[in-house]
Write a protein that binds this DNA or RNA. Structure first.
Lengths: 127, 127
DNA sequence: TATACATATGTGTTTTTGCGCATATGTAGA
DNA sequence: TCTACATATGCGCAAAAACACATATGTATA
């Protein structure tokens, strides 16, 4: 793996990506459920329009905080693997935000994940 | 010391405060020199107009990242005391930004600090 | 291929942010 | 009190960011 020097702009891009309610919530969820999630799940959990979720995910991805994996109809997003101290501390900072601030979202998220039809051959998300 | 519950907005305010080049540099310097600095010193070190430095400092202060102490003509700014995990990890994240990104500023900063006339009764900053 | 579902994007609008200029406020010293 | 230095702020502008609406793209399935 290359060790491309990060520039100041890259650090700023990370902070900027995290300075929005929706995006911070997405990161918090990804860190706390330790699962990849697809766009429509985030839409339901955060109650934000699909087109806005898509755009926010793009910004997080441009900041190298998340990555996408396409699976059939769905595009799943998950945390990017950590590659340096900076990212680790950023993760820890986000993790230190108490669940108190996210109870509603966390509840909805757990429900959503439970609805995933893992039984038969139908791949993932449920109704 | 009161333990006022932070809200999601407070965390966002911190990230937003750090998502600007000038402000991130100010925080990096404060963390790396372990000294309070006054506005005019920052102006010289970062080569940013005085009125903009003032404004950026205000934003950092509103995010509770720094505090001010007035001394004579000068207003010194220093890091706010840490009060929780979140702040600690944010500090560590900023500290993990390598000096490579700040060589010019760091040099000028050391020069500036050395110029402080601590000898006679004249209080602080030098020419 | 037609349809439904999932995701992304083009466009226009509103809000927010950062900056420059001018100026106000505040402090110390002649 | 007058002047110089240090800091803060009101105002207008330009760029960036966030959002809503419509629509495009992409995939699976009947």
């Amino acid at each position: 793996m290359y060790n491309i020097e990060k520039e100041m702009d890259d650090y700023i891009k990370v902070f900027k990506a995290l300075s929005d309610m929706t995006r911070l919530k997405i990161m918090w969820l990804l860190l706390n459920i330790d699962e990849k999630v697809c766009v429509s799940e985030i839409v339901d959990v955060l109650e934000v329009y699909q087109y806005n979720v898509s755009r926010h995910l793009r910004i997080l991805k441009d900041a190298k905080l998340i990555n996408e994996v396409k699976e059939g109809k769905w595009v799943f997003y998950h945390l990017s693997p950590l590659e340096g101290e900076f990212g680790q501390f950023v993760h820890k900072a986000i993790c230190s935000i108490p669940e108190t601030e996210m109870t509603k979202e966390m509840t909805r998220c757990k429900v959503k994940l439970a609805l995933r039809t893992k039984d038969d051959d139908i791949p993932y998300p449920g109704t």
